[in-house]
Design a protein around this nucleic acid. Structure first.
Lengths: 218, 218
DNA sequence: GTCTATAAGCGGATAGAC
DNA sequence: GTCTATCCGCTTATAGAC
């Protein structure tokens, strides 16, 4: 068994198990036995459990941000700011097709992202911010430029609303899909769900401000 | 120290620590030493760590659903279905004022709810569904009735989008608020954030369907 | 009800043989 | 690079004195 083989097996097993149970709830013993490698291999190849967690995220996030940046460059050739629809399309298309084409499950990606936010792993948050913060800020900036009439603070709150809606619903995709299938007999694909999510996100980002026309209830 | 005093001290400490770190990351030793009680007291009064977790949620959710049900009864006196704005106002007002008046921090409540979803605690999910599932379905049903033109599957996906936006942004409220304060010098209160969240949720729930008028991009 | 003491086990990590 | 064996800290939970 070559080195990279062992490394890959560990990463594959860790990715699945972390997404299913969380970081603290997944022991190195479970990971190594699932991967069919020796317990000591994790510390040999990665140094520690924390560094293994970071490696799992790096394998997801580096291709993701690379593809997203290329997509933004391609579309950003024109001088004027991108349209909202285009930006969200880029984001969701990349998250879906870009990752899927590399054999990475987009739902698992979202579950891991959600865990990165909710599980209190300070080292992981720092790792992600320092490594991918620029890409995030670039995308947020372009999104803000497409919404010039929304004040910055409201914009950022809405961005977090959108992030929450996306991460939460996609990371629980299988569970929600199962409920809806049982209650309505309707199967939902990931594509359909993103096709529902995109207009919902647009509606939220472009909602009328407190002072504006519509929504002037009773 | 009376019995109920010890029980309260344990619940108070557990609530704060769980919300800060999660369940697995919080040991009974940390809880009992923070509460200033003996380690064995948890198992004596609650039986196990799992039952303590459930007790923490029961103390939050029982008053919450009680107040919400009363509110829905009060408003539902009229024969016609409630308006969307009214329903969301009820929900957010109850979550905020209702809990705050009982000394329960709404942000902590949201963090715990988020953890209940993301941390893989099967027993907790089962406990919440069996205990509070009816209240949830009642609220969802009234919300659906206020949106007769949205097909059921789309409605439920949007409900989860809304849930995700709410839980995610409120459970990370302090962190997001700190970022915005640093970047824009603007402080955000919880009330202001809910005042931003409500119209965003309405916009998402009432967004045009794929076939409808607006949003017909290029 | 509250305490001490301890059981029994799992966790991450490493030393050292191969 | 891979393995075994082991260290040691920390976990939940309980038995039994007070």
């Amino acid at each position: 068994m070559s080195q990279s083989d062992t490394v890959h097996r560990i990463l594959d097993a860790a990715e699945v198990l972390f997404a299913e149970r969380g970081f603290t709830e997944t022991s190195l013993r479970t990971i190594t036995s699932t991967a069919g490698v020796n317990l000591a291999a994790v510390n040999y190849h990665f140094g520690s459990k924390k560094e293994l967690i970071q490696a799992v995220f790096e394998r997801f996030l580096t291709p993701f941000t690379d593809i997203l940046n290329r997509e933004l460059n391609r579309r950003g050739g024109a001088s004027e700011p991108l349209q909202l629809d285009d930006l969200l399309q880029s984001l969701y298309r990349v998250a879906l097709a870009g990752l899927a084409s590399q054999g990475r499950d987009p739902k698992r990606f979202m579950r891991l992202l959600g865990l990165a936010y909710t599980q209190s792993q300070g080292h992981l948050r720092r790792f992600i911010v320092s490594r991918y913060g620029d890409s995030y800020r670039r995308f947020a900036g372009q999104l803000a430029a497409a919404l010039p009439h929304v004040d910055p603070v409201t914009f950022y709150w809405r961005l977090y609303f959108m992030l929450g809606a996306t991460v939460f619903s996609l990371s629980s995709f299988d569970a929600i899909e199962a409920i809806l299938r049982e209650d309505f007999g309707a199967e939902s694909s990931l594509e359909e769900t993103l096709a529902r999510l995109a207009p919902a996100a647009v509606a939220m980002l472009t909602a009328p401000m407190p002072g504006e026309s519509a929504g002037d209830n009773h």
